[in-house]
């Protein structure tokens, strides 16, 4: 375990970020498309389709239309998926197939800086996607401002947390197919059971307790509160909860990558 918490990261990690940004810019039109279209699809499906079936929803004692309820969750889900995808599949391809990290390690960059740059980049992708989605969803009048602006830095915090978790898996999976495991056992349950598509109050107490441990639950809570224009102390607690995930998984990711790549 020597060196688990001792790493030195200079600001040169930004070089790794810049490399990914250079590639992103080359295909920006394609990169912009999913966060642009996804909320439209969801809002159409849930707003026009499912809404009629569901009707109004009870949330914290207030009555909301279903679209109002799920729109903030869509943003939270996107934050999770953007960073997690980037730091699992995309990072793995760069590390394993393209040997990008090997090439970088022959330069002044250290592995810690490479891993840091990748995770910060994953969080950045969360931010990009969030901004695009915010614009779309705001057009439907579903976000309350100026509170809504806080969602942008939160996307970064959430991206760091989910990206670090993803990077940790990148450090330990033997092959790229194995990512299906954390996807199926961790990401998909969160996608469904984090108060995303129905209020957690509908679940039995024990399930609510488990759900309250999931990082996505907290991200959904914050973004939903902000979208509705409410600011309270639970936001601080939930943001802190995400930061704790980041602070646990960031060193774990560093350690796993070191074990994997330094031979």
């Amino acid at each position: 375990m020597r060196g688990l918490f001792s790493f030195h990261v200079s600001q040169r990690f930004l070089r790794v970020w810049q490399r990914n940004f250079t590639v992103y810019r080359k295909t920006w039109k394609i990169n912009f498309l999913p966060p642009l279209l996804e909320p439209l699809f969801y809002l159409l499906a849930f707003g026009a389709g499912l809404s009629a079936l569901v009707g109004k929803i009870q949330y914290h004692g207030a009555e909301l239309s279903y679209v109002v309820f799920i729109a903030p969750a869509l943003i939270a889900i996107t934050i999770m998926y953007s960073a997690f995808f980037e730091n699992t599949f995309s990072s793995f391809v760069r590390m394993y197939y393209q040997k990008t990290y090997d090439a970088m390690m022959a330069t002044p960059l250290t592995l810690e800086e490479i891993v840091t740059g990748e995770i910060v980049w994953g969080a950045t992708k969360s931010v990009f996607a969030t901004v695009i989605m915010l614009v779309i969803i705001s057009l439907f009048g579903l976000i309350y401002y100026p509170h809504g602006f806080l969602i942008i830095p939160l996307a970064f915090v959430g991206g760091l947390a989910f990206g670090s978790i993803g990077m940790f898996f990148t450090g330990i999976v033997p092959t790229i197919d194995i990512f299906n495991l954390p996807m199926f056992l961790f990401i998909t349950p969160m996608f469904l059971f984090s108060g995303t598509f129905f209020p957690l109050e509908n679940l039995p107490i024990w399930a609510q307790l488990i759900a309250s441990l999931l990082p996505l639950t907290h991200l959904v809570n914050i973004i939903r509160s902000l979208s509705f224009g409410s600011l309270d102390v639970s936001l601080v607690w939930s943001t802190g909860y995400l930061l704790i995930f980041f602070m646990i998984f960031f060193p774990l990711a560093q350690h796993a990558m070191k074990k994997r790549l330094i031979k």
Binding site: R12, R15, Q18, R19, T22, V23, K26, Q98, K99, T100, D102, A103, M104, T107, P108, L109
Partner: peptide
Amino acid sequence: NLDPDLTVQQNLEVYARY
């Protein structure tokens, strides 16, 4: 281990940035 996501020119420029 050239960077397949980049062009020839960019490979050198991005590497120089490191």
